[in-house]
Design a protein around this nucleic acid. Sequence first.
DNA 1: CGTCCACGTCTAC
DNA 2: TAGACCTGGACGG
Length: 360
Amino acid sequence: MPEGPELHLASLFVNRLCGGVVFTGAVTKSEVSKSPGVAFSCAAYRISAASRGKEVRLTLTPIKSDDKRRGKAGEADRPVDIVFRFGMSGYFRFTPEDEVPKHAHLRFHSDERPRRVLSFVDARRFGSWRAGGSWQPGRGPCIMLEYSSFRQNVLSHLSDRAFDRPICEALLNQKYFNGIGNYLRAEILFRLNIPPFVQARGVLEDLHPEETKGQIPDKKTQEQKMVPDLLRLCHSIPLEVVNMGGKGYDPEKADYSDFEAWLQCYCVDGMSSVRDHNGRTMWFRGDPGPLVPKDSKSVKKRTKKDDHQDQKVAGTSSNNKKEKVIQRQTKKEKSSSEEETSGTVRRSERQRRTRSTDGK
DNA sequence: CGTCCACGTCTAC
DNA sequence: TAGACCTGGACGG
């Protein structure tokens, strides 16, 4: 669940559930985790959280007790910050001690009875944390919480080579779009009908610096402001997810359906998808744009349960990096595939469940 | 059983 | 621009 909205929801989650809780003792780490242990131990401390883009920072604040029997060796008295990245599968849980989830790699123990545990859970372990530091240098301002400087940061660096890339790939660059991930880029570009593989600079260079405070907008400016531009949607669409209220963050199935219903493009039946230059799946509708990878393969969505269709578009070689499946391909098949997949292809013809054998 | 795929970085050739 | 890093769910045989 981890893109900007999920990270921010995680911070809200921690503040809501742990705000009044006193924690105690050491911060414990799973054996298997490669992230460094957190050298913090305290008889009584509180936990608060903040987020920035795709990072969450926990602050452990020791509670000053009246009796000054502090001074035990290793006892902290100053606040400690821990900055987390969630990888592909990280999230926080707060559970009774005997219900700590599998893959809980960093744990904070409450001073209650029965005890509860705040856990950083991360099945794939692509996530990480670092104690004592701050936000990762090089990551840009938060798309949700630092909108103004985010916008400024992008528009003042358009000469950067990063904006040579297709817009869909630039949107994953955390130096400029801290918080955007794979589902958000699809949803954002979809709502503006921007082809994903057009050069980023071209999409961005005409945008206003905006937020020109004190200036009375004339009618034209007002009209322009009615139409949210790309950078504004990089802010507002993630906030839509946040405002759904915990859905989309919680890995439990019950909440997940709401999030699924919110998606208009990403993994949605009838949309097209291709691998971008970094091997990430880009979901879109219509024209992919001129910078689409040459050997890209278009794929129709596979639905999970209901109608389990798994239909690929015939044609182009399957460029699966890992398995290196060498597919034969004929020019004829290729052209027919492009005809079917690239041109907006009104999918009026309901999802066909025909499994066209690809390139075989 | 097996293969493919996943909301993300990292670093090495 | 490839892998590497991981687990697990969905789906196919």
